[in-house]
Every structure is written in structure tokens, then in C-alpha cells.
Write a protein that binds this DNA or RNA. Structure first.
Length: 245
DNA sequence: AAACAAACCTGTGCGC
DNA sequence: TGCGCACAGGTTTGTT
């Protein structure tokens, strides 16, 4: 309830029908028949779970939404970084400016090669921060940024202004392929099982990670280099110093 | 302007 | 066994 109140959330959700389940980047968007929308962001540790009414709830269950089919939707979030808010789509620019400022979502929106060229600026900013920049391109997080760059053998610290046309084509291809493969596999559920689907099930894409979480291992792609890990601003980056250039 | 770091929190796993 | 520390999927805010 970072930008709303308990009362406003309860009022906005009581007696309404959820018309759809949509998404932009990492923001879940649920249009309601009241004309408002429920936005949920899970941040690092949030979960939305569907459960039988009365089932024992996990610790850190902050919101329980009772549905009319007898099931409950839980919002669970140990670290409390996540949030939910009911907003008026006509006033989205003031109520949820971060959602309004998102760049194109490569899965949800048209994302052509020229769309990628549009977000690559002639600066020395590195490719890793570019991929994590939600106002530039929406939805890519730390795991997939590393996996995308590894697939196309691009170093995370390669400056944006060093990309030639071939590099841009490669990066565009890798964004589509890695995200599609990860979605097919149900996402990446790491050891602490925080990322799970509505029914609490995990994904399997963590088994296909080539660099994320593999620091110190030999590169699965080239077989020559070792996977390196660096930390900047509390975020870790993984890459192969031999095959990523 | 851009590049960092800190802050927001709890839980887990490790070395000692 | 217990303590302290590093670290975790993200974003915002503040400081160089």
C-alpha cells in the first residue's frame, strides 16, 4: 500500500468483477468492471496464489481476496517490496506514472529491430543497464539480461555505442528467443522457490541458465572460458570472459 | 547527464 | 549451536 491506503484498496476491490488479467513489463494489470484497474507488482519476493478458501495461509500473506467461486487469491510478500493499488486508468499518469513510463514490452507489444534501434542510444552506457532500463524496454530482469547477452556473445559492459548493425540484429534476436524460451519453461524458480505460478508450481528455466548462478563453472557454450560474476549496486552480473565480446 | 550507492525488508545459507 | 555476514527475482531516491 505504498501509494494507497488499506481502506482505498478494500473499497476498490469489494463487489467488483475482475474482467481480465493483463501485464505490461513486470506490472500485473487487472481491469475491473468498476472501470478501475488493479495493479500488482511482485518486486523481489511477491507471490499471487490461488487457494481453497480457509486453507492455511503462508506467513506474510498481506491481502486475501475472496472470489465468488469459493477460492481465494492471496498476495504474499515476505520482503514487502511488492505493492498493489486500484487506480483510475484515466488518471494513470498521476496515479501510476511508472506504469505509464514503461518502454515497449517485447512479448506484449510489437518489438521490431527498428524498435530496438530506437532505444539504443549513442552513449557509452553498458548493455546490461540498458536491458534493465524499464522505461527503455519493459520486462527484462537480472536473470534474463545476463542470459540474453550470453546467447549473443555480447559482454555486459559493452557500450551501447559500440554496437554495429550485426550486433543489433543479434541482440534483438536474443531478446525474443530467451524470453520466449523462459516463458515456455514456466520461468526460473531458484532454490528458495519464490517465483511460482498461481497454483504454487515452479518453472524449469533455471535448468537452462547458461550463466546466471553459474559463477566459477566452465562455460557451457564455448567450453573454454569460466563464468565470471561481478557485483555493482547490489546487482550481480554473470558472463563468460572467453566467448562474450 | 550518467554512474553509483543506499534504501526499502525478511529469510537463508555460509564460514568461523 | 550460534553468531555475523553476504546475498536474493526490483525500483526509487539521493549522492558524486
Amino acid at each position: 500500500m505504498r501509494r494507497t491506503s488499506r481502506e482505498a484498496l478494500i473499497h476498490g476491490l469489494t463487489g467488483v468483477r475482475i474482467e481480465a488479467a493483463d501485464r505490461r513489463g513486470k506490472y500485473l494489470l487487472l481491469p475491473l468492471d468498476s472501470g478501475d484497474e488493479l495493479m500488482i507488482h511482485l518486486r523481489m519476493s511477491g507471490q499471487v496464489l490461488l487457494a481453497q478458501r480457509g486453507a492455511p495461509r503462508p506467513a506474510h500473506t498481506h491481502v486475501v481476496m475472496e472470489l465468488d467461486d469459493g477460492t481465494d487469491l492471496w498476495f504474499v510478500d515476505p520482503r514487502t517490496f511488492g505493492e498493489g493499488v486500484v487506480f483510475d486508468p484515466d488518471r494513470a499518469a498521476e496515479q501510476v506514472p511508472d506504469v505509464e513510463n514503461l518502454g515497449p514490452d517485447p512479448i506484449r507489444d510489437e518489438f521490431s529491430l527498428s524498435d530496438l534501434r530506437r532505444i539504443v542510444r549513442p552513449t557509452r552506457r553498458a548493455l546490461k543497464p540498458l536491458l534493465l532500463d524499464q522505461p527503455a524496454i519493459a520486462g527484462i530482469g537480472n536473470i534474463y539480461a545476463d542470459e540474453i547477452l550470453h546467447r549473443r556473445r555480447l559482454r555486459p559492459d559493452r557500450p551501447e555505442n559500440s554496437l554495429d548493425t550485426r550486433d543489433e540484429r543479434r541482440l534483438h534476436e536474443a531478446i525474443g528467443v530467451i524470453l520466449a524460451a523462459a516463458i515456455d519453461a514456466g520461468g526460473s524458480t531458484l532454490g528458495d522457490a519464490q517465483y511460482v505460478d498461481l497454483m504454487g508450481g515452479g518453472g524449469s528455466y533455471q535448468d537452462d541458465h547458461r550463466v546466471y548462478g553459474r559463477a566459477g563453472e566452465r562455460c557451457l557454450t564455448c567450453g573454454r572460458g569460466w563464468i565470471r560474476r561481478s557485483v555493482s549496486g547490489g546487482r550481480s552480473t554473470h558472463w563468460c570472459a572467453a566467448c562474450q565480446r
